[in-house]
């Protein structure tokens, strides 16, 4: 089989790409998509570690399943927030929402 570190590399790459997306994209929906990428990177790690280090226990899979749940909830609430913000300010640009400054 492929050694474990290769999966970890893919996960690291996916996470870094997601990180870039969160930091650099202006559109709030794009930021949300990048967050999904990061969550997936975490899932790859969870499953890969489970497969290689503890295939007999099932905690890794269970954890990944819970990450799915959280991701689904996050996507639903996040998109609802974005739509609400769009309604109020006619914009989905994250930078435009800067009420917290100074």
């Amino acid at each position: 089989m492929v050694p474990l570190w290769m999966y970890l590399m893919v996960a690291a790459g996916l996470f870094s790409i997601g990180l870039y997306g969160v930091l650099a994209r202006r559109n709030a929906i794009a930021i949300l998509m990048s967050i999904e990428l990061m969550l997936n990177a975490v899932n790859i790690n969870l499953v890969a570690f489970w497969r290689y280090q503890a295939p007999l226990a099932l905690n890794g899979q269970a954890f990944a399943a819970f990450v799915f749940v959280v991701a689904a909830a996050e996507a639903a609430v996040g998109l609802a927030l974005i739509i609400t913000i769009y309604r109020r300010r006619q914009s989905v640009i994250a930078e435009d929402v800067d009420l917290l400054k100074w």
């Binding site: 870094s16 930091l23 202006r26 794009a30 930078e95």
Partner: peptide
């Protein structure tokens, strides 16, 4: 739209790359 990227995107690239390098140095 002027740009799909924020003004800080070069920093974001650097951060992501460094972060990746850091992870690679640990997991590989």
């Amino acid at each position: 739209m002027r740009s799909v990227r924020t003004a800080q995107w070069p920093v974001a690239v650097a951060v992501a790359v460094i972060f990746f390098a850091l992870l690679v140095s640990v997991v590989t």
